[in-house]
Design a protein around this nucleic acid. Structure first.
Lengths: 243, 243
DNA sequence: GTCTATAGTCGGATAGAC
DNA sequence: GTCTATCCGACTATAGAC
């Protein structure tokens, strides 16, 4: 009763790229780390838990990752890569639009609205069910792994979003106002990740149904656009389709 | 070098009510628990840290609270009481308005807008600088202490807010749509608590200045109202001042 | 009520066989 | 590369003096 991988049922391999396909100890530890660190947090996760969940020997953790912390960093790096890959198309679309001097306000607003359902779908997907706790923990008690997340995708995404907001509202993209407005808008999405326990209890369920996810995507996109549109100076709201 | 309370400088006593005024071991442990659990999380906080930060003996934790977990529960109970007290006036105002059959939509919207700056001020206050991590951790990895928070104020506040949103949008207050819309709106506030590390890095500072807090309060209230107003069916938006 | 001293457990990392 | 066995430090809780 020592060799079985016990319980690694559904979740697909995190790094599904070409080369890293083997079901070896290293990958099994990465997957187990994702689950265990998400469920317990870094401190409460013990190397014994990690090894037994992965179905590998305890000594494999220092061997492959230099220790528990090294495994944690590798897990954070893996989810950062995954999210970055998921966001890249939207980032490129936004960059293209921002280079267009003649983009209309309504085009900018629509693009901002379209940037929200993607992350919601990702974070609600089974593949990503462990991302939330890991990200939220790094927000509250940033560790040495926080820069991996921040430089990996957070900074890029927020800067692009703030540029769009700045363009839409005719304010400098790096002003506190643009940054705060962008954050507030993003908060309409983020709260479903960050206040997960409360919303699920309010909805009376244990996890988000597909129907709930669609509803959240629709409502967040709608309200996000409305929030910014309503923040336009009055004179702009009438002629919103001007560049 | 064993008796000094070492570092309990500024933060005022958590339970400033009449009777509990003594600077005794029990209160010092509560305050230290607030700080240490917030900074490290439950698991990483050791009884040695807690006792030395409080300037009391290690054995005082089992003595007064039955153990580390009991101290944690007491800390969560204390912040729940604090937040509940802070929210009570707004809750009562909302209840009064909801009992008024003739309240206009714009009155309801204004009240919703007014419910947001309060919590923002509280969570940004020095007194409450440790609330965020504790609350966020319970959202991500709810422990046996989560019901203390949820039943203590979260449920009440969210139900009231959802009733206001439902009234404003003419949808049932307990429908998924009302619950999700309410959550998304609240997210514009919550994100400043839950994604603290990111927003501070974007703003280029270590903590929120008073000016930032005022800006956040203004923007969140404005965007929250706009988000809901923009979600009204078109036909309503013209005659918004009708009941 | 507060202390010291210690019991008993579990943590992460390592040594060294295979 | 993978295993077993073990070290050693840190943890929480308790016993019992004062």
């Amino acid at each position: 009763m020592s060799r079985k991988p016990s319980s690694l049922p559904s979740t697909p391999c995190l790094s599904s790229t070409k080369e890293a396909r083997e079901d070896d100890a290293r990958n099994r530890l990465l997957q187990a780390g994702l689950e265990v660190f998400a469920k317990c947090g870094f401190e409460a996760a013990s190397t014994r838990m990690l090894a037994s969940k992965a179905g590998v020997n305890l000594a494999a953790i220092p061997y492959y990752f230099g220790g528990k912390e090294g495994l944690y960093h590798a897990v954070i790096q893996a989810i950062t890569d995954r999210i970055h890959r998921h966001m890249q198309p939207a980032i490129e679309r936004a960059q293209a639009l921002l280079e267009d001097e003649h983009a209309s306000k309504s085009e900018i607003l629509d693009l901002l609205g379209m940037m929200l359902p993607g992350p919601i779908a990702l974070f609600a997907s089974p593949e990503a069910r462990y991302f939330g706790p890991l990200i939220a923990n790094e927000q509250q008690q940033p560790t040495s792994a926080f820069p991996i997340l921040y430089e990996g995708y957070v900074r890029r995404v927020h800067e692009i979003a703030a540029r769009l907001v700045g363009r839409y509202l005719d304010i400098p993209e790096d002003s506190p106002e643009a940054i705060i407005r962008t954050h507030a808008v993003a908060g309409q999405m983020f709260v479903f990740l960050g206040a997960r326990a409360t919303i699920l209890r309010r909805l009376g369920c244990d996890s988000f149904s597909e129907e709930n996810v669609r509803l959240i995507q629709h409502i967040v996109a709608e309200q996000a656009k409305a929030a910014l549109k309503g923040s336009l100076p009055m004179t702009h709201q009438a002629r919103e389709n001007q560049p």
